[in-house]
Simulated scan of single mutants.
Amino acid sequence: MGKNDRDPDDSELFRQAIGPVRELPAAAPPPQKPKPKARAAMAERDETEALSEFRRAMARDDLESGDALSYRRDEVPPRVLQRLRRGLYAAQDELDLHDSDAQAAEGLLREFLLQARHAGFGCVRVIHGKGLNSGSAVPVLKNLVDRVLRQRADVLAFHSAPPAQGGTGAVLVLLAKR
């Protein structure tokens, strides 16, 4: 006998045997571990990498008063840096940072580079001094100039000036064209 072959009275007999039925209230779902808050994993990773890069840049050895500043972007040929080191590029403008504190010097340097680029200058000289009278173990302005110049996209290369143009107390900066 199949399911459909049952006598309709069977289901009625079952209901009578059971009695009145009431529906149970819906049970609350079992407690679950709370879901973690959504977070921007890529942004956190980028922030971590940027902070790590910043710490590496700040932790690198400070320049001493006699050390030469030197830097060139990868797209700049090495011979350009050699010519800059020899002073073969004429500085079209000059900024003297002597007697400036670090905060003022940074502002002056950024403004000077901006104006030099707008004027279309290709090479400028920044005099930072050797730091012999700075009152600290390291030349503050020299290290500041080195850090700022490395961060700027408009600076193609820089090198300490030849002795006749200020030596390790000045730097020649090659700027990108506007």
Rank of each mutant, 00 (worst) to 15 (best):
T48K: 12
M58L: 09
E49S: 13
F14W: 03
L51E: 12
F54S: 03
P25G: 09
R15A: 09
E64R: 14
A57N: 12
R39T: 08
M42V: 07
Q32K: 11
A38F: 10
A28R: 06
E44P: 06
L51A: 15
F54D: 03
D46E: 14
P36E: 13
D46N: 13
A27S: 01
A57W: 12
M42W: 08
R55D: 04
A59R: 05
E53G: 13
A41R: 14
E23R: 15
P29Y: 06
S11D: 11
P36N: 10
D62I: 00
A38I: 04
K33T: 03
Q32T: 04
I18M: 13
P36F: 14
R39N: 08
L51G: 07
K35C: 03
T48L: 15
T48A: 15
R22W: 01
E44N: 12
R45Q: 14
D62M: 07
A40G: 12
R60M: 13
E44K: 14
F14A: 03
Q32M: 09
G19S: 00
L51M: 13
F54Y: 07
R55S: 07
A40D: 14
A26L: 06
K35I: 01
V21Y: 03
R45L: 15
D62P: 00
R56K: 15
K37C: 06
L24K: 13
L51I: 10
A50R: 15
S11C: 11
S52T: 07
E12M: 12
P30F: 14
E49G: 05
R39F: 12
E12L: 15
E23I: 13
K35Q: 05
E23P: 05
A27C: 02
E12Y: 12
G66H: 05
A59D: 01
E64P: 01
S65I: 03
E47R: 15
S65Y: 09
G66S: 09
A59W: 03
M42D: 10
D10S: 02
D10H: 01
M42Y: 11
A57H: 12
R60P: 07
L24S: 09
E12D: 04
E53R: 15
R60K: 15
L13G: 00
A40S: 15
A50C: 10
G19P: 01
K33A: 11
K35H: 06
A43C: 05
A38Y: 08
K37R: 11
L51S: 13
R55N: 08
V21F: 06
I18D: 03
M42R: 10
E49Y: 15
D61E: 10
A26T: 00
D61T: 09
L63T: 01
S52F: 14
R45W: 14
S52D: 07
L51V: 12
E64L: 13
S52C: 11
E49D: 09
Q32E: 05
E44L: 14
A38H: 06
R56L: 11
L24V: 08
R39M: 09
A40V: 03
Q16V: 01
G66P: 04
L24Y: 05
D10A: 05
A38M: 05
F54T: 04
M42C: 02
D61N: 08
R39Q: 12
A59L: 06
